[in-house]
């Protein structure tokens, strides 16, 4: 059974893109439109990797990451930041990678592969 990836992004079109892309490459996916739902889903689904948008309605990505880090059950889940903000590489220092929208598809897949090896 493939790894499971959680996509947290408020833009349904981006969610659609990422989940399709991951599923096409043999991963399972789940997704959440905001930080709060994302946390709940992470706790329930225990994904192997999370892609995280930074700018979302309600709580932003960095807050999601802080809360996630405080939960022992999910705190070690690797996170890839995918956001439209420039200079976002410093937003979440411990992220395994930080990509800027529009991102390179092959680059993202490579990072995912390397992380989940």
């Amino acid at each position: 059974m493939g790894h499971k990836i959680l996509v947290v992004d408020d833009d349904p079109n981006v969610v659609d893109y990422l989940t399709t892309l991951f599923e096409d490459h043999g991963y399972q996916t789940c997704h959440a439109p905001d930080a709060q739902t994302g946390l709940e889903m992470a706790r329930r689904e225990k994904p192997d990797l999370i892609t995280l948008d930074l700018e979302m309605p309600g709580e932003w990505g960095p807050r999601f990451y802080r809360k996630m880090s405080q939960d022992p059950e999910i705190k070690n889940t690797p996170v890839i930041v995918i956001s439209g903000m420039s200079g976002n590489e410093y937003a979440i220092g411990k992220a395994v990678a930080t990509l800027t929208k529009p991102f390179d598809r092959e680059q993202l897949l490579k990072i995912v592969r390397d992380t989940l090896m």
Partner: peptide, 21 residues
């Protein structure tokens, strides 16, 4: 607007990917 533009371009990439596949 740059944020919105980036979102749109990403979504457009998504559309193109799905069309291709």
């Amino acid at each position: 607007m740059s944020h919105g533009v980036k979102g749109m371009l990403t979504a457009l990439d998504g559309g193109i990917y799905q069309l291709e596949t």
